Computed example of a mutant assay.
Amino acid sequence: MEPRIVTRGVTKSFGAQEVLRGVDLEVGAGEIVALLGTNGAGKTTLVNILSTLVVPDGGTATVAGFDVARESREVQRRISLTGQAAAVDGLLTGDENLRMMGRLCGLSRAGSRARAAELLDRFDLADAARRLVSTYSGGMRRRLDLALSLVATPPVVFLDEPTTGLDTRSRRELWDAIRDLAADGAAVLLTTQYLEEADRLADRIALLDGGRIVALGTADELKARVGDELSLPAPTLDDVFLALTASTRKAA
C-alpha cells in the first residue's frame, strides 16, 4: 500500500506544554486511519501540522510525498481539511456553494457546474441543491462541508471530528461518504471521540497518548492485545482505550 502520509518523530510544544513527543505514523492510499485520544492528547495539533497550519518543532512529516514544512504549497494542493465546524455559506444554496468553490479551484463555469451536480448527487443533497444552506439540517451541512473540500479531488483527506454533534442517522450517512472517498483511493486520516465510529469505519486505529502513538492496528488486533493482557474474553474498544491510556500514564 502506497504511503500518502508519513510522520517520523514529530514533536510540538506550545510554551512549556509538550503536546507531541515523537509521533510515528503512516497512512496508505485508500486507507482510513482513525486517530483516537483523550481531549488535549494532540490529535488536532497533528492534523494541523499535516495540513500545514502549524509547523512542527522536530521530526519530519510528508504528505503525498512532499514535506509539510519545506513544501507547504505543494502539500496544500493535494489535501482537503474538514474541521469540527461546518464552513459553509448559509446565504447561498448548496449548489451555489459548490459552484463557487469550483471557480475558486480553477474550474470553468461548465466544469464547476458539472462538479457541483456530481457532488450533490454523491452526498445525497441533489433534492436540496437549490435550497438556502441556512435551512439545512446539521447532517446536511456536514455533508455539504465535506463535498466542498472534495471539489478538487485531493489524494489526501483530513477529517477533524467530522461527526461531532450529529444524530445517529446523519453520522452513519457521513460514514458512507467517507468510505466512498477511500474506495476512490484517497488516504483518510480521521480524528474522533466516538469509539464506535473508529471501530466500524477505520481500517486501522492509532491511539495517541502522552504525545506518542501508543497503539496501532486494526480494531480486532487491538482488542486481542488487550484481551490477552487483561484476560478479558470479549474486550471492546472502550476496554482498549481505557487499558492502554491507563498503562501509559502509569509508565510516565
Rank of each mutant, 00 (worst) to 15 (best):
residue 2 E to K: 09
residue 7 T to S: 01
residue 11 T to V: 09
residue 14 F to M: 12
residue 14 F to G: 12
residue 16 A to E: 09
residue 24 D to E: 14
residue 24 D to V: 08
residue 27 V to M: 08
residue 27 V to E: 05
residue 34 A to H: 06
residue 38 T to W: 00
residue 40 G to E: 07
residue 46 L to I: 09
residue 50 L to W: 04
residue 54 V to C: 04
residue 55 V to R: 14
residue 58 G to V: 03
residue 59 G to C: 08
residue 60 T to R: 11
residue 62 T to W: 04
residue 68 V to T: 06
residue 69 A to T: 11
residue 69 A to Y: 04
residue 74 E to A: 14
residue 76 Q to F: 03
residue 77 R to N: 12
residue 80 S to R: 06
residue 83 G to T: 07
residue 84 Q to H: 03
residue 85 A to P: 02
residue 90 G to V: 10
residue 92 L to T: 05
residue 95 D to E: 15
residue 98 L to C: 04
residue 104 L to S: 09
residue 105 C to L: 12
residue 105 C to K: 15
residue 107 L to E: 04
residue 110 A to E: 15
residue 115 R to L: 05
residue 118 E to G: 01
residue 119 L to R: 03
residue 120 L to D: 03
residue 123 F to M: 15
residue 123 F to K: 00
residue 125 L to W: 04
residue 125 L to E: 04
residue 142 R to Q: 13
residue 143 R to S: 05
residue 144 L to E: 05
residue 145 D to L: 07
residue 146 L to S: 01
residue 148 L to V: 01
residue 150 L to T: 08
residue 150 L to I: 04
residue 151 V to C: 07
residue 161 E to T: 00
residue 163 T to Q: 09
residue 164 T to N: 14
residue 168 T to Q: 11
residue 169 R to V: 12
residue 176 D to S: 14
residue 177 A to D: 15
residue 180 D to E: 12
residue 184 D to T: 12
residue 188 V to R: 00
residue 198 A to L: 08
residue 199 D to W: 06
residue 200 R to K: 15
residue 202 A to S: 13
residue 216 L to N: 06
residue 224 A to G: 07
residue 224 A to V: 05
residue 227 G to S: 13
residue 236 T to E: 15
residue 237 L to K: 14
residue 244 L to C: 09
residue 249 R to N: 08
residue 252 A to Y: 03
residue 252 A to I: 08
